[in-house]
């Protein structure tokens, strides 16, 4: 006797449901949306084909990467990383109070919470490059502008994730402390912050990675670091130096990301 279940006259349902009129319109709209995006890009097969030789010649001139100015390059790479660390540290320190004000249940008033959330969202949605431009005008060319840009960018990122981490903490210890008459600050720093600490550390490491990546680009608008070197090398068609810069930047970013990943695994 076979183990198979005996056949039934009932047929399995259709593999795909026939879309209704509304759903069909939605799909069509989605396709149109993507096509519309391409229509504004000016991208064409012809352009790509014509662009290939110049890309090839640039790559050829990049090889082999020049080590002539390696001292100077490593020095500004170090400055770039310092910018990332300083901006990140400032941003993280300022994120915590702002995140507390933005956290449901910890914020003193819904209006304060709304304002804090709005500020964090504003810091996050304006790109770091724009912040760099703003701070270059405010404090002049150089790494200081980069540090401030990274700081604001970090607040936008960490503020949001700190607040979310605190909202997700166990409500029990908070209730226990409130029940004994503890003050708001006591509840936050005795129960909420210790509970959210692993998440805070993970977010902080992400911030440092993100800051390292963006600190490279910020130099392009004059906010200090290795970005300036990269821009100068490209402007002077000094592609073999540019290749060296790209490679050392790549090495730094990979190093920070790997170190961050290892640390995160050990903490969580």
């Amino acid at each position: 006797m076979s183990l198979a279940t005996s056949p039934t006259t009932r047929r399995p349902p259709e593999r795909f449901e026939r879309p209704g009129a509304l759903r069909f319109l939605l799909y069509a709209g989605l396709v149109a949306f993507v096509v519309w995006g391409f229509s504004g890009s000016g991208l064409s097969a012809e352009k790509l084909v014509r662009g290939l030789p110049s890309l090839g010649s640039m790559l050829e001139r990049m090889f082999r990467p020049s080590l002539d100015r390696i001292d100077r390059i490593l020095e500004s790479l170090l400055v770039t990383f310092q910018m990332a660390i300083a901006g990140c540290a400032l941003g993280l320190v300022l994120s915590l109070p702002l995140a507390i004000l933005a956290t449901d249940g910890l914020s003193p008033h819904p209006v304060v919470r709304g304002l804090a959330r709005g500020l964090i969202a504003f810091f996050r949605t304006v790109p770091d490059l724009v912040w760099a431009l703003v701070f270059v005008i405010a404090v002049g060319l150089g790494p200081a502008a980069g540090v401030l840009a990274i700081m604001v960018d970090t607040i936008g990122f960490a503020g949001r994730f700190f607040a979310e981490a605190m909202e997700e903490t166990d409500k029990g210890p908070r209730e226990a402390l409130s029940a004994m008459g503890a003050r708001r600050m006591g509840v936050i720093f005795s129960a909420v912050v210790p509970d959210a600490m692993p998440s805070f550390v993970a977010t902080s490491l992400f911030c440092l990675e993100k800051a390292t990546r963006s600190s490279v680009v910020l130099g392009l608008v004059g906010a200090g670091g290795i970005g300036v070197e990269l821009k100068v090398a490209f402007d002077l068609f000094d592609y073999d130096t540019a290749a060296t810069i790209i490679l050392v930047v790549f090495a730094l970013v990979v190093l920070v990301e790997q170190a961050g990943a290892v640390l995160r695994r050990r903490i969580i």
């Binding site: 166990d170 029990g172 210890p173 226990a176 409130s178 029940a179 004994m180 008459g181 005795s190 509970d195």
Partner: peptide
């Protein structure tokens, strides 16, 4: 004033409600 009156009352919960990482 509410906090002050709560302070005189010890509350033990079903789940201990301790801060687990401390």
């Amino acid at each position: 004033a509410l906090a002050a009156s709560r302070a005189r009352v010890g509350f033990v919960f079903q789940k201990h409600n301790l801060v687990s990482r401390l």
